[in-house]
Design a protein around this nucleic acid. Sequence first.
DNA 1: CGTGTCACCGACCGTCGGGCCGGTCGTGCA
DNA 2: TGCACGACCGGCCCGACGGTCGGTGACACG
Lengths: 191, 191
Amino acid sequence: MSPASGRRRLPPAERREEILKAATALIASSGFKGVPLDAFAAACGMTKAGLLHHFPSKDALLVAVLERRDELDLTNIAGALEPAKDPASARELMTTVVRRNLTQRPILKLYAVLAAEALSPDHPAHAYFQTRLSEGRAMFEHWILAWHPRPDLAAVELLAFLDGLQHYWLRDPGIDFLAQWETFADRFFTV
Amino acid sequence: MSPASGRRRLPPAERREEILKAATALIASSGFKGVPLDAFAAACGMTKAGLLHHFPSKDALLVAVLERRDELDLTNIAGALEPAKDPASARELMTTVVRRNLTQRPILKLYAVLAAEALSPDHPAHAYFQTRLSEGRAMFEHWILAWHPRPDLAAVELLAFLDGLQHYWLRDPGIDFLAQWETFADRFFTV
DNA sequence: CGTGTCACCGACCGTCGGGCCGGTCGTGCA
DNA sequence: TGCACGACCGGCCCGACGGTCGGTGACACG
């Protein structure tokens, strides 16, 4: 029994990854401000002081979590950069995205909880969500541009519906997310 | 000058009302957990101790705020209890509600911020929002029942869209809420 | 087997925030 | 005009939390 004491020593990269994973899960279930540093630390079997050795402050930890998520997500939206040529292919792409989101419940909850917390202008992630929102809208507008008569209205409508439906689904997993999506899409993608 | 000292003495009912109004505004802009008791008190020119004389605890204050809101709202939705007979009148009613919501930005923000905070099961308002959500959905389903082929899907779709759009609007007041609503309604109320 | 590095820890500090306690003073009523 | 009630306050306690500091022990390297 080499680790007779509970103390574990890991290479920094590995430990950072472990912390970020645990923090992501914790934030998703209980928010950021509501979770004390000790909890993040305990979740990977260490103390506050140990955790602060890897991240200089609690806020820095949050930033790292968000950056990690962005990094992981970027590998999956490469296809959406070009404007869609027609409604059918647009719908197909969106359906894929929706399906994928359905398998990532904790991640969605992370964003839902954090985005709400970050409504307060003094929240450490406020700016992050502010810019992310406008970028997202611009991207959608550009993507819809080719085939919809009012890309601006349509972009907001699509984003709002998906966002609202996700919130709903997070609070009540019983609803049939895909059916709801198809119903909406039937009308939305009919020009 | 009778109130030479800054001290004001009010009849309890009046003071309670003043506190609830101030608390509503404060919670809407900064959440509940994020605002210290002193802030609620200071907002109506008193101290923590004075406020706690009227509400036994901080949580009790929150409950009172929500109950007050419900009371005020109940006077305005009396018309919605009966199922709508046809899409046209349903749309008309909803448009009225939307218009009214547009004049109540702080209230909407209150609900948005609190509902997010209350996702944590240990939040004092968790149960409140849980029941409120399912009641709301049931009410809508019942209301839509008469004229829509799939009231269950439609209720969630309508609620999700409105909720999402409101969140969007809270973060970016620049969007044209009414235009977005009409666009959505054009399709939604066409059977 | 000695030695240095560094991941990690225990204990502590300052601050903040909720709630309580012993008053104090404004006010309706006799 | 006095008195009693109760709205309200100053000050305190205590637990929670973010962050610091001086170690300490696990592991590489010799």
